[in-house]
Design a protein around this nucleic acid. Structure first.
Lengths: 230, 230
DNA sequence: CAGTGGTCTAGACCACCAG
DNA sequence: TGGTGGTCTAGACCACTGA
């Protein structure tokens, strides 16, 4: 057995890339070549190179070979928090307060965003998430009642809509948007901050096989930040 | 040959998870069992399950087997943009304007952040990034001159410090922080917006094997957002 | 057309750790 | 201590695509 595993080979090649052995755009050796050089099988080299490609350092194409990217595509893997966990991990006591719970015909802008038919019913929810009694985030959510009718019977005073949906409704994919916005009157009141304060916001939409489930906008208290390693 | 590849097997198992076949925390079948069921080799199943674990849907432990996570760890893979590319991809013409370029002894808060010795020299840079002549983002950057002395000779009017550093200085890791903040006088002037406007900000620090290279804070014009699939 | 990466297989050994 | 996942190997076939 060689002393090289796919980890060490990946690291070795990574070092050679950062050391500039292959300038950006230049062809790198083929997998078989590396396998020979490191005394391992081609599959092991393949695994190492696939990870480097996945991390955005190199580009690989059949027949065309492997090249170092001109500008490495920096990526961060963000863990999107479940608010209750986030608060409890930080040592706080979580509580939430539902300030609006209304079943209604979907307004147009939600109809188009959730791809709903005319006269579709939705649940409109507004919730304040509290840490040790202080506002942590304010959530404005719309739920497609066709996709998740059971939510009307959910004990939303005990479990947040987010957690209930994660548990009860299968989802397949979603999208997320991060931005900053100034607090409007409602956000300011809910978060006990001044109107116009700069709030970090997360918008999310999730669906299951072409059927939209829910869309949500979360306004965090001033000073909040998300962190990730790169 | 079976018609199953690791993609289709991953999707199949993913569907069975979302359908609730194995409640959270419950033991899933072993790799060998899946291999038998899908008529493929264990290695193929392994690859599918590793991806699901990587995506945060399941947890795997030797001997202990594979289990569905209680709350799936939602993750988003964010592509951190190189500003020039971001602007050009959107069809704009990129230009940048260096408004401060100063070599100085590192102030204390930077010394501690970059882990520098006393009397270390740093380069302080402030840059406005323009799209079609309009301010897109404002950057405040500190560079450790021990780690990247060559930057003093770099044509920073032609290539941004970020791109120069990516090209010329090997890095190994970094961290990134997303937040919202209110525009101060400098940010407001640079971005041609009002003081107090809500700005989306990205802070980054990068280093190479325990040696800090640079730290930077980027303030985006109001209305900017980052997007990702989940 | 030929050489690349993408993938699968069957078999093997090992590290880990719950029972 | 036995069963699990983690990993490697040697060989094979295929899809793609540049020359």
């Amino acid at each position: 057995m060689s002393e090289h595993n796919h980890h060490s080979i990946r690291e070795a090649i990574h070092r050679r890339i950062t050391a500039g052995e292959w300038p950006p755009g230049e062809l790198m050796p083929a997998e078989a070549r590396f396998a020979e050089e490191y005394g391992c099988s081609r599959a092991t080299v393949n695994r190492a190179l696939q990870k480097l490609a996945d991390d955005g350092l190199i580009e690989r194409k059949r027949r065309a070979g492997t090249r170092v990217r001109d500008v490495p595509e920096k990526q961060a893997r963000l863990r999107i928090p479940v608010i209750r966990q986030e608060i409890e991990t930080a040592g706080g006591v979580y509580r939430s307060h539902v300030i609006l719970h209304e079943v209604m015909k979907a307004p147009d802008f939600i109809r188009s965003r959730l791809n709903l038919e005319r006269d579709a019913s939705v649940l409109h929810l507004q919730t304040v998430h509290l840490s040790d009694g202080h506002p942590h985030a304010y959530e404005d959510r719309w739920v497609n009642l066709e996709a998740a009718p059971g939510i009307l019977d959910a004990p939303l005073d005990k479990i947040s809509a987010n957690e209930w949906l994660i548990r009860e409704v299968p989802y397949s994919s979603g999208e997320v948007r991060f931005s900053a916005c100034a607090a409007g009157p409602r956000e300011a009141e809910a978060l006990e901050t001044a109107e116009g304060a700069a709030l970090f916001t997360i918008e999310r939409a999730t669906w299951f096989e072409d059927r939209f489930i829910t869309t949500m906008k979360l306004f965090y208290r001033p000073g909040y930040h998300m962190w990730a390693e790169v």
